[in-house]
Write a protein that binds this DNA or RNA. Structure first.
Lengths: 391, 391
DNA sequence: TTCTTTCATTGACAGCGGAAAATAAGGCGC
DNA sequence: GCGCCTTATTTTCCGCTGTCAATGAAAGAA
């Protein structure tokens, strides 16, 4: 895939066009009048915004024979042509890279893993380059250029600067990852925090579509939370936000690695659950799967551990709801494998601790395939591509 | 003050003009080039936006002889003429009305109280009308029209609809207060939640000026919190947000009137403190002042109660910081009278429970004179006046 | 076929904000 | 006191975006 060096940019030069495109991207096929209604723009503005996007091939008219209204000229639904552009997303964890190739609609086309052999920035960068190369080879088969790379890293990430300020798992400090990756891969690179990236994916392509205030809670090794307020992902003035895992809910709770007692993560994080199940059963429990097996086998102690975890998560979510009053909380993450073991406790604890109308907030779970994190990274790349500084 | 029936509106018809005016309002006298720099607009746009505002008398040129730069044409600072318009703000509590008359810069000119004799909407409305009449009489002395009335009510308030959805203290449900008050007073009325109103005042005229993410925590009878995220006050999808008072921080804590255990308010709210001090001292303690006196007299039990309250507040603030990563938290409220008794605990608990860079968030206290709540209400009226639906 | 209804497009136009040139208003050096 | 220099502000176009109102298009209905 030699870069065809045509500096083709996304043909969106006005706020209206940008609004139109993201609306169609999120809300599936829409007729022009629906777009006008949704965005508040005039029909004329829609026509003018849509034309260059169709000419450039990013939008296509859907000749949908069904669903005709009885009267009047039939409406012409327009949708995003997902195949028009490809993107890469890579999630960097402490011990592996997960990469995906997605289309413009953020549908995963190819997924790949790569175990990480060394956590220093340089070798990690080399392995990112390797994974990107593999995925680019796959992309060749689609005959469409890859327009951007998103990297998702846990920890304190400054997206605007493209730098990883501090990542505990990788033990990185102030790594200008976007710049480095752009040099080695030749692609435009977007770097963001992993939970925020996942939240962007939900906001544009998932359960958060159309909502201006919602939260994504991830349950797994850590307990994370991405927040969308006023239609924007919350980044925090100092790069830290959504640390629901370190909301302390019990001064008498177990010690957390952050130094406090009773953090949600110290009760419901994977490590904590594995340890607690082991203790309850009086045996060594190696990992989450084994702990889960214990509980599913009916071990009362193990079940109690999960119940306690569910309560902690429910209280954490209630805290978010009490402070922000979101419309929806999406629970996701690998930890959802144990959902049957703590669903009830999450709901009960949430209902009990949510104050007043905050309890009206809907709570929904979503399974999270392992590539989802990488898909989030791709979503940030798509976002960057679309909103590229052409204002 | 007969309404002079001239439907004079605020001469702001463009986003640029609105931006300019609010910038000057918040950031004191500014020269035109400073405005351009701050807002990102061109010098030409500033000139065009400023002229009609000066012509209408809302802005005035400050002939400031000092602070001249050595070289070049002297700059002309421009400031808002506070005296150009007056506003009323009324805070409605369960047992009294607090009203203020402010100028356009939200400086209090006159303050008045009125004990509330009945909590039903109708008599309350009549008393609001009475207080407004008094304040309007005072306003006559200034020879300037009163342009709006803000009403601050605790509870679930829908500002856009101008309705009080539910107020526990007043026992109101779905009262269309803005409409009713507009009818009886003849003024444009803005109704908002009291803590949010206070937050608006801080955002435009207080310590939150220029910040896009901060929180206001009020300590008093209740523990409340107003949040500003992405430069906008958070209202919550269901009208509830910032309920820091009902963030549960200790499952073994005292029972809260909301039904849970260990809410911040159940530990640090006035009622809780009074009860706990009474219990510690083994005597009847009537009110907050008496409880405070006990502690200041050195009673160890009473001091411990305040220490515990401080810790609860600090943990609550840390929760906000962990979730939202604000730049600043402003602590205010009548409860600050006891600040010397729990300042240390607030800081320590915050520092301990804040995760990572969230601890970089500044925490500042601000005394809260009793009229401040009413001033917040006036601030919402000013906001409505300025951003009145002229696009 | 002609009418009705709804969707989409076109062309004229108003108005906002930007760029650059012009003007204003001081000190400074001589 | 006179021109020069510097910085602040205004003026004068000008491009561009989005709206309005009128027109064209594509059905089904009469």
């Amino acid at each position: 895939m030699p870069p065809s060096s045509r500096p083709e940019v996304f043909p969106v030069h006005t706020p209206a066009a940008s609004q139109i495109f993201t609306t169609v991207l999120s809300h599936g096929p829409l007729t022009r009048s629906e777009m006008a209604g949704r965005t508040g723009l005039s029909a004329a503005a829609v026509t003018k915004a849509v034309r260059p996007l169709i000419e450039a091939g990013y939008l296509v008219e859907d000749v949908d024979e069904e669903a005709r209204r009885a009267l009047g000229r039939p409406a012409n639904p327009v949708r995003v042509d997902g195949g028009r552009a490809l993107f890469l997303g890579v999630k960097v964890t402490g011990d592996e890279l997960i990469g995906v190739l997605t289309d413009l609609c953020c549908r995963i086309r190819v997924a790949r893993h790569l175990p990480l052999t060394d956590r220093d920035p340089k070798p990690v960068l080399a392995q990112i380059a390797e994974l990107v190369r593999e995925l680019l080879t796959e992309a060749d088969g689609f005959g469409v250029r890859v327009r951007g790379l998103g990297l998702a890293v846990s920890g304190d990430v400054d997206r605007a600067a493209g730098a990883v300020r501090y990542s505990p798992f990788l033990e990185w400090r102030d790594v200008p990852l976007a710049e480095l990756a752009a040099m080695t891969t030749g692609l435009p690179v977007t770097v963001d925090n992993d939970v925020r990236a996942l939240t962007v994916a939900e906001q544009w392509f998932g359960a958060g579509v159309g909502l201006s205030d919602f939260a994504v809670v991830t349950v797994g090794a850590g307990i994370g939370c991405g927040l969308v307020v006023h239609g924007q992902v919350v980044a925090g003035a100092h790069g830290v936000a959504g640390e629901i895992g370190h909301v302390a809910i019990d001064p008498a709770g177990p010690l957390c690695h952050c130094g406090n007692r009773g953090c949600v993560e110290a009760i419901a994080g994977e490590e904590a659950i594995v340890a607690a199940v082991g203790e309850a059963a009086g045996v060594q429990v190696a990992d989450a799967a084994e702990a889960l097996a214990f509980a599913h086998r009916g071990d009362a102690g193990a079940r109690a551990v999960y119940a306690r975890a569910g309560e902690a998560i429910g209280r954490g979510i209630a805290t978010v709801a009490n402070l922000l009053g979101p419309e929806l909380v999406i629970i996701s993450g690998e930890g959802l494998a144990a959902y049957d073991l703590f669903a009830e406790q999450i709901r009960d604890a949430f209902a009990a601790a949510a104050f007043g109308s905050a309890a009206q907030c809907a709570v929904r779970t979503r399974p999270l395939p392992f590539e989802e994190w990488a898909r989030g990274a791709a979503a940030t790349a798509i976002q960057s591509f679309i909103t590229t500084d052409q204002n």
